[in-house]
């Protein structure tokens, strides 16, 4: 049975983890490699590293970090943040990333999805989609961390992204992100049934039940979360055991 995946997301700025709690036995909480290794040991199924550095030196610092993660971590990991070209993706692949994630750059230049997918395979390309509802209740894509609303409709965009060669979709509802009020499960379920590629749910988890609901009712293949892990509200191992108790297939 294919397991549902639990994926912690680490925001990285200037080579350091932005959030994170003082795990017992972890010498350097700010080191994204140490924190990732800790999550892997706790049972994370994959890791996502997002570079949120604004400076010009970002690329080389982040690439060096990706090399260190690849040396150390024995599970797959995805990297993203500011990838805007085939060359950006290639340097991260060479550094050892298993997948890359693109968001605003894919909206600005959809061809980028097919360029990367045809060169390195669909399994390498995770397209992140941020969307929110507008007055008539339909969903519209946003870019630049949700700050810019476009007139692109969610389901049409998701289908196009799939046809362009994306291997997975990471969907975040900007209506729910940061609210800790749960995920829009009906929207996730509609996405899952309209696509043939896996959907990763992101943004909104406040409890184990929220994650269980999006994996069952929302038919998501994976759940990505940051704060509930970073602030130590629940360990990944404890979360997965509670999901298993609800008959959700997880890797223990």
């Amino acid at each position: 049975m294919l397991a549902k995946r639990i994926i912690p997301c680490l925001d990285v700025k200037d080579g350091r983890t932005v959030k994170g709690i003082n795990f017992e036995g972890l010498t350097d909480v700010g080191d994204p490699v140490e924190l990732g290794a800790r999550y892997a040991a706790e049972g994370a199924d994959e890791l996502v590293y997002l570079d949120i550095t604004a400076s010009k030196e970002r690329r080389s610092t982040f690439t060096k970090l990706v090399e260190r993660v690849a040396d150390r971590v024995n599970i797959p990991f995805t990297v993203g943040g500011g990838i805007a070209s085939l060359e950006d993706a290639a340097s991260l692949l060479d550094a050892g990333a298993d997948k890359i994630t693109i968001n605003s750059a894919a909206v600005a230049n959809p061809q980028l999805i097919s360029d990367i997918a045809s060169k390195y395979g669909s399994q390498f390309v995770v397209v992140a989609i941020d969307a929110r509802t507008i007055a008539d209740g339909s969903w519209r894509i946003t870019t630049h961390g949700g700050s810019k609303l476009t007139d692109i409709e969610l389901f049409g965009w998701a289908k196009r992204v799939e046809q362009l060669g994306a291997g997975e979709i990471l969907f975040t509802s900007m209506d729910h992100d940061g609210t800790r009020s749960g995920y829009p499960c009906q929207t996730y379920a509609a996405l899952a049934s309209s696509l043939d590629i896996p959907v990763i749910a992101s943004g909104g988890a406040g409890s184990v039940n929220d994650i269980a609901n999006v994996l069952i009712d929302g038919r998501a293949d994976a759940a990505l979360a940051a704060s509930i892990f970073h602030y130590g509200e629940i360990s990944i191992d404890a979360l997965k055991r509670q999901l298993a108790a609800k008959n959700i297939p997880v890797r223990l």
Binding site: M1, L2, A3, R5, D45, S122, Q123, G167, E168, D196, I197, P198, D221, A222, R251
Partner: peptide, 15 residues
């Protein structure tokens, strides 16, 4: 040979 509801590639953790 994917049936309706199957996803190919087979990607992720399986037993």
């Amino acid at each position: 040979q994917p049936q309706p509801g199957d996803k190919v590639p087979h990607m992720g953790w399986n037993s």
